[in-house]
Computed example of a mutant assay.
Amino acid sequence: MKIRRLPIEIIKEYKKLDTSSITDALDKQGIVGGLLGIKGVVNDTRACGQAFTVHYVPCGINKGTVGDFLDDVQEGDVVVIDNSGREYCTVWGDIMSQVAKEKRIAGTVIDGVCRDVKTIREIKYPIFTKGIYMMTGKDRVEADAINIPVGISGVKVCPGDLIVADENGVVCIPISSVKETLEIAKSIEATEVHIVNAVKGGKTLKEARAEMGYHTLQTKAID
Rank of each mutant, 00 (worst) to 15 (best):
V80E: 05
Y56D: 08
I120D: 06
K63R: 13
D94F: 01
N62G: 08
G137P: 12
I38H: 04
R46I: 06
Q74R: 10
V41G: 03
K16N: 02
L36D: 07
E192I: 09
D72H: 07
S20P: 14
E180P: 02
K124A: 10
G76R: 07
V164G: 02
K16E: 00
G60Y: 07
I148M: 05
P58K: 12
P58E: 14
L35I: 09
S84E: 12
V178F: 01
S97V: 15
N43E: 14
D94C: 06
H215L: 06
G37K: 10
L36G: 08
T65Y: 11
G201L: 05
N83G: 06
E142A: 11
G49S: 09
I22M: 05
K15I: 09
E167N: 09
K220E: 08
K130L: 11
R140V: 15
T136R: 03
K200S: 09
P58Q: 07
G160W: 01
V199F: 13
Q50L: 02
M212T: 13
R104H: 14
K179S: 05
S20F: 15
I127M: 05
G151A: 14
A143E: 13
S21D: 11
S177R: 14
A185V: 06
A25T: 07
I195L: 10
K2A: 05
V171F: 07
K28H: 12
V42I: 14
C48N: 02
V42A: 09
V54E: 00
L6S: 01
V141G: 03
T204N: 09
G213L: 07
Y214N: 03
M96D: 15
T23P: 15
V78P: 04
D18I: 11
G64R: 08
G49V: 03
D68R: 10
V117C: 04
V78W: 05
A190L: 12
I31T: 01
D27M: 14
K200Y: 12
G67I: 04
E13G: 00
V155L: 02
A143H: 14
A210Q: 12
V193L: 09
I110P: 01
R46E: 10
N43F: 12
I95T: 15
A165N: 07
L36T: 14
T90C: 11
I22V: 04
Y14K: 03
K179H: 05
I195C: 13
I123W: 05
V178I: 02
I163K: 10
Y125C: 09
E75A: 13
E87S: 14
N197L: 13
G85S: 03
C89E: 15
G137K: 03
G202Y: 03
I132D: 07
G34T: 15
T219L: 10
S97K: 11
M134C: 12
Y125Q: 06
E102L: 10
L205V: 13
C48W: 03
V117K: 04
V157F: 01
M1K: 13
G85W: 00
I173D: 04
G154S: 02
V178L: 02
E122V: 02
G107N: 01
V157Y: 00
I188R: 06
K138V: 14
N168E: 10
E207C: 07
P159G: 11
V41N: 03
G40W: 08
E183M: 13
I188Y: 08
A198S: 06
